[in-house]
Write a protein that binds this DNA or RNA. Structure first.
Lengths: 118, 118
DNA sequence: TTGACATATTCCTATATGGGAATGTATGTT
DNA sequence: AACATACATTCCCATATAGGAATATGTCAA
């Protein structure tokens, strides 16, 4: 079996750097495809293809405006990624490390303290 | 050109659900490969292969203990993902939406207020 | 209608899987 | 030494790209 489809979920869709660039560009607001083509310096067909993937995972919405198609960010699709990775924040955040120290100290004193008779 | 290698960066490595499962399992602490094999219900060679990918992007560290190899989470490698996705939090968080409203109101009153002389 | 402009889709190709099966490599045991 | 245990690697294959080139579709202008 090959790797999962890029359209399978946001994790796969966003694994491609160009697609992250596109989302970053759309963070500033709605934009037509050609804007993205110029901003990224990528051929138009490739941009359209990336946009299709982003659309399929719900990371962007489209709106027709004359002969242009305005793409807009829909960050909601990225929430699962945020939720998942957030639980690992502890691994690099000094804030959590400090908290861990406090909790450990509490545990120590609790053990040393007169918790149980026996 | 094909898709970027899974070992290219954390984004690609983590796009695979099984690898996220492995990281989740390691969140509880160091574990030998066989533990993961049982926990995930996946054949041992596949687990070893996934661990190799995770090792190559720095998401896990290994330590030899007799004939076992203890894998440990190294969440630091996930920080770039967190940093990137965090900037989109605004898109779904009510907290930020509320903040946006406040900022908008401030802007309004600033304009109506006697900002400039002239 | 003819033509220009903005996008999307299709065709083709090199490449990177991810799973299954078989095998290689240490290390511990008897 | 012979064997079992714990992992890692290799081989094979079906599949999903991502980019380039060419083409199709849709809209507005003359």
């Amino acid at each position: 079996m090959a790797r999962a489809a890029t359209t399978a979920d946001a994790f796969n869709a966003v694994a491609e750097p160009r697609r992250r660039q596109i989302l970053d560009a759309l963070a500033g607001g709605e934009r037509p495809v050609n804007d993205l083509v110029r901003l990224l310096g990528v051929a138009q067909p490739q941009v359209s293809k990336h946009l299709r993937v982003l659309r399929e995972v719900g990371a962007v919405d489209v709106r027709d405006e004359g002969r242009q198609r305005l793409y807009r960010l829909n960050g909601h699709a990225l929430k699962p990624i945020h939720d998942w990775v957030k639980s690992y924040e502890r691994s690099w955040s000094e804030r959590f490390e400090a908290l861990d120290v406090v909790l450990e100290e509490l545990k120590q004193s609790d053990e040393g303290d007169g918790g149980g008779d026996e």
